[in-house]
């Protein structure tokens, strides 16, 4: 894609961001909550995109970190008062990072279909652990009664119980993750993991210990998934084994593909589209899963590059129609110009 087309995309994304910033002041309470959900899934989908779209590791167990962080938050939150976010957030993120390190240690030495199946099996192992652990609510799940408090000394910095404050808190988290991942991908580390995706043997031949690069990428993705789970635990106020289940992992995978893997902004759009559709289908019929199934299959067959692919094509077309026909043909610029 040429630079002008990518500039068009950037304008489009910035205008979307402005809409997001304005939304809580105009949207109904219910829909503001729904958009929070979308943003949380956006964070989760970006973290999975780091694995699928940039490292070339297709994980079917990514919900494990999302759900685990929710449980860690429930464990560290006392029932009668709020826990300090300075304690809860590092606890949840480091906990999921540790889990990702252990699971990754076994998983990333495999590839392809083995990796898919092993990540799935480990996620199920966690699922059953929480499903059968009655101290943590078993299959019913466990409540998180109070959102963590953000205080400095005795001053409350942010009142997360306020709907609008919490909305912006999630939005800022999403933007932070987005820019963090972009920085990471532009760094030498990011170049190496993208090299692994393109050709792992060649990257290893260049002298990079690919196992450790993949492991670090896996741990980072897991930790960011943990951040999403932490936010969801605060937002929903409950965490249940369903959060770790493989249906959830399948949903995240679907969001990444629907949005367009390897683009970072695509998965965010995928999250918005998917959660919106889910909500809409549920409104139309009790058999909404049927519609969802048909939709998933249609995307796989007819839209393999996802929404981001559509946007790129559209931007390229718009660009062409305004460009002088003598201008040299479009120049490939990879994904670096987006956003």
């Amino acid at each position: 894609m040429n630079t002008r087309a990518s500039r068009l995309i950037r304008y489009f994304l910035i205008s979307n961001l402005l809409l997001l910033v304005a939304f809580p002041w105009v949207g109904e309470h219910f829909y503001v909550g729904l958009v929070m959900n979308m943003m949380i899934f956006g964070i989760l989908a970006m973290s999975l995109d780091l694995l699928i779209g940039y490292t070339g590791l297709v994980s079917l167990g990514h919900a494990a970190y999302y759900g685990l962080a929710g449980y860690l938050l429930a464990i560290i939150s006392p029932e009668s008062e709020a826990v300090s976010i300075w304690l809860a957030l590092p606890f949840c993120i480091l906990g999921t990072a540790l889990a990702a390190l252990i699971i990754g240690w076994f998983s990333v030495r495999t590839s392809g279909i083995y990796f898919i199946m092993i990540t799935l099996a480990f996620a199920q192992m966690l699922f059953y652990y929480f499903n059968e652990n009655t101290d943590l609510g078993g299959s019913d799940g466990i409540f998180i009664f109070f959102k963590p408090s953000v205080t400095l000394g005795s001053i409350t910095l942010l009142d997360l119980d306020n709907h609008i404050v919490f909305y912006y808190f999630i939005l800022v988290c999403m933007l932070l993750v987005y820019f963090l991942l972009r920085m990471l991908l532009a760094s030498p580390f990011g170049q190496v993991i993208q090299g692994i995706r393109a050709n792992e043997n060649r990257t290893r031949a260049l002298g990079y210990p690919t196992f450790y690069y993949k492991l670090v990428s896996f741990v980072i993705a897991g930790s960011i998934g943990g951040l999403a789970g932490f936010l969801e635990g605060m937002h929903g106020g409950i965490v249940s084994p369903g959060h770790l289940g493989w249906h959830e992992s399948g949903l995240i995978l679907m969001i990444v593909i629907l949005g367009g893997m390897g683009t970072l902004y695509g998965p965010i759009m995928g999250a918005f589209a998917m959660i919106f559709l889910q909500d809409w289908f549920q409104e139309i019929t009790v058999h909404w899963m049927l519609l969802m199934g048909v939709f998933v299959i249609a995307v796989v067959l007819f839209l393999p590059r996802g929404i981001a692919g559509l946007i790129e094509d559209l931007a390229a077309k718009l660009d062409k129609s305004v460009t002088d026909s003598n201008r040299p043909a479009t120049q490939k610029n990879g994904e670096s110009g987006d956003g």
Binding site: V58, G112, I257, M292, G293, V296, I297, V300, L301
Partner: peptide, 15 residues
């Protein structure tokens, strides 16, 4: 494989 996983995931939802 990624697309196979997704398509058959869609089939599960339908079935």
């Amino acid at each position: 494989h990624l697309y196979q996983v997704l398509l058959t995931y869609g089939l599960i939802l339908i079935l």
